[in-house]
Design a protein around this nucleic acid. Sequence first.
DNA 1: ACGTACACGTGAATC
DNA 2: TGATTCACGTGTACG
Lengths: 534, 534
Amino acid sequence: MDSSSWIHGYTNANAAGNNGFMCGYSASCSPAGEYYFQDREQQQQLLVSSQMQHHLNQISMHMSMDDEPAAVYGGAPSNGARSMVDDLLIGSSSAHHAASSFPSSSSSSSFRSPSVSCSPESCVAHVLAVPAAATGFQYPEVSSQAPLCLAPLLPYEAPQHGHYTGLPLTELPATGGGAFRRYARHLGPRRPPKPGACGQRMFKTAMSVLAKMNMAMKCSRQYYYQQAVSAAPPAGNQLQHMISERKRREKLNDSFVALKAVLPPGSKVWYSTRTNKTSILIRAREYVKSLESKLSELEEKNRALEAQLASRTAVAKDEDYETAATDQASEKAQDLVEIEVTSGGAGAAAAEAEAGEESTETCTLNVAVTTPPSRAMSTTDVVLRTLQCLREQIGDGASLVAMSTSAASGGRPPRANLTLQLKEEMRPKSLHETWRRTIVMTMAEARTVATTASLDEYYDRANCTEEEEDGTTVDDAEEKRMTAEGRWEDKAAAKVVAGALPPGPSSDAAALALQRRTIIITSRCCFEEVSSVV
Amino acid sequence: MDSSSWIHGYTNANAAGNNGFMCGYSASCSPAGEYYFQDREQQQQLLVSSQMQHHLNQISMHMSMDDEPAAVYGGAPSNGARSMVDDLLIGSSSAHHAASSFPSSSSSSSFRSPSVSCSPESCVAHVLAVPAAATGFQYPEVSSQAPLCLAPLLPYEAPQHGHYTGLPLTELPATGGGAFRRYARHLGPRRPPKPGACGQRMFKTAMSVLAKMNMAMKCSRQYYYQQAVSAAPPAGNQLQHMISERKRREKLNDSFVALKAVLPPGSKVWYSTRTNKTSILIRAREYVKSLESKLSELEEKNRALEAQLASRTAVAKDEDYETAATDQASEKAQDLVEIEVTSGGAGAAAAEAEAGEESTETCTLNVAVTTPPSRAMSTTDVVLRTLQCLREQIGDGASLVAMSTSAASGGRPPRANLTLQLKEEMRPKSLHETWRRTIVMTMAEARTVATTASLDEYYDRANCTEEEEDGTTVDDAEEKRMTAEGRWEDKAAAKVVAGALPPGPSSDAAALALQRRTIIITSRCCFEEVSSVV
DNA sequence: ACGTACACGTGAATC
DNA sequence: TGATTCACGTGTACG
């Protein structure tokens, strides 16, 4: 084992590597004289740190190629320092000892480089043919024949796969917007200057280049004659495969951005620079579902409107309420607004302190729009409707203290927090009763207007809870769900059509429910008449 | 260069390989005696063709490991044939010559195998530490110590990443439906019987196993002592990375199928067994666009229907408006609400940052009730009415972000702060125009209902500003005062009765007024009908 | 045999 | 620094 041995292990680490010298793409073999590196912009040689150049020189010297170092990596001067290679050799003077430690570090000692290689057409077709040739490395005494040996490989750069075989990349502008434009970033300097940060990469690059050179040399030396014909077809297949895969990836990514373009810009998917494909998929699904639900809802509304219009022409205006009520009842499952009532929360303490130490309690309503954010159901509408419902049903018992809303973000619907100040007779315990009383009252009133199945159903339940009103407070211990519907022009106030949940066990959930109860309010906002004014 | 040389190149081909021995997953190191191969079902050794076994034996003999061939690959008999290896060696008797031809064939000579390796916990952590150790290959005379050397690696199989570290795969059922279920297919026989087709894969598998073994041996031999501690953390990172990547892929694929589930089953996406992710994306985009177009179309139809319906009802209730409007006009001097519009305030910055860096601006409205706090004009009512006015006059151009109210204290009337987020077309500059336009429109409408002195006065001023609407933006530089009145039941929208201030000098106050303008809105809230319900 | 599609592990970049 | 995402080349399966 001589010094060529570790270079050899070296080269092998690249040879079978994932992104090794086999199929790289960025720094292509220029047809001109600067082999492997083109002098476009201030290319790699400007980014190669002095340390890297040491290694390059070291390696090239090991490869006996230092007679033409300038031609190898773009004219960088060879200064003969051997710091890192020597560092790799310390601890053991055995050659393969040092070699064995090379790829062990995941971040700095892996010599693969996806960004530098021959053009695939040339290097893959020929270097791939003899990928493990370096394992033997029987001829370390390589001279400047290397460029000469690469010369016959260059004709393979001719594109043969449509515009995707701009892979030689000498034809691709660095900022080209066409296919495979993503690969153009490997052409220029890897980053804006940022000196000293690309040393490892440059090292890998250099190693890859040198390994490739070594390959090519061996190829041209003595084994080229026999492997060029036998192994060329599989190499071409590999190349084709790689190109196809690139094409496929590009198509997939384009589809991703195309899909993202049609999604509503309501989420942080759009605000982040990175695309996060999973979020795109999830949001696309949500959006599709929301669109479908909205569409069905609108379809139903449309159908009801048409029916209403048809009936309007026939009979008098007495049926207006009837149809309007039934129209609403049919939509009560949609436009759900979930209102969570939390009494005496931590956030309410500040508001209460600001309002003075009265004997009133604060009650926070967390209003979350469960319907997808749409034009007809914006946060303003929901807040407006909620306030109206509160005003209608509680009256002066509660007064608004503070409010905050958060726009829809991250797929979550917009939220609104209302902090109310309840009057003495409106403590949370009695608030619930107030709700129920309001419901019953409006029920009684609504019954005079329209009677539907759901109304009757609720009335049965309301009667059921009414008998609890006498002594027990069981109803406070359970969550109640109610639906309130109303129209602006409907002076008969909200018509509660859905009933409360059946009373559960009264003792266990009592403490919890005293602090938090959830009420579902179906709030249909009819702003059409108002909006038409603007 | 002896015979170990090409095995050595061999091993390197796997060592730096993509799916090499480093992080494979399917055939895990069983804690029992059969190292690398578990005897679940009719595992690999039953699928290993005789030819493959030849190669295995050949290689194992080269590795001087044929003293325990049964233990290595599951008890398959060693028959000593060397067909393929010898085939690889024909044409040249040089060892590295043959080695160099190995990975050149794309379909049959690549020795990577994603499906066979140690369990990641064991092999990655320790084999990765010395990946290129085989390059030296100083000790080809390996004996049955190999299994012994792997024994200490097995404790690393303990899962440490939730259920995803079922990677040892001895815990994963082959048909499990949970996470990473995809990897379970590598456990069983690679295919349903299909004899003779999996020879290449088996060969790769065997090569990978042998390379791994070689690694492990070398690891345990002499280099283990020095690399185990220094390179163990990167190995753990590598494993973590691999697991994270698997998790990410799984999530992405789940999102794909979830998205596919909501797509209409009308296309070939559903008929093909393969998923074709690109088609999913494209079809999702098409579906979203079709849904959107359908939705807008239906919305327009709905709007037309409702307009038709409203026009039909309007004729029936004309008298109501007339009487209500005159009733209002007599009270217009009372219940004044002053609304101060401040755009781009400091307090709005936080709210804007929370809502994301959209191109929208925030606009703070300070609503102060100038009337003494009375029962009929509580803060809730004012906020309600103000929101309603905003909704009527701006529509969807503004959405409520935050709000805070302060109760009446110290003789000061109650105040309310509304923070709005304005859409792009609702910048303060155009907001002002919107206000004015709204005023003009509602003015024109209010004139048909009731005519008062203040109305006429405003109208004169409105005409004065109307001519500015054409070209100049002078009106943006001045403060405007307007009063809006409305009733809930008044579908004719708010009637603006107060006029704008006389236009002052346009240049001096321009910068100030661009940031702050005050609008006086007289908001009469008529909650009597609603309140009487409670 | 050929083309397409997917999963995989890994390096690099970003947060 | 650690976690997460993406691009990449490759192996493999399917038509």
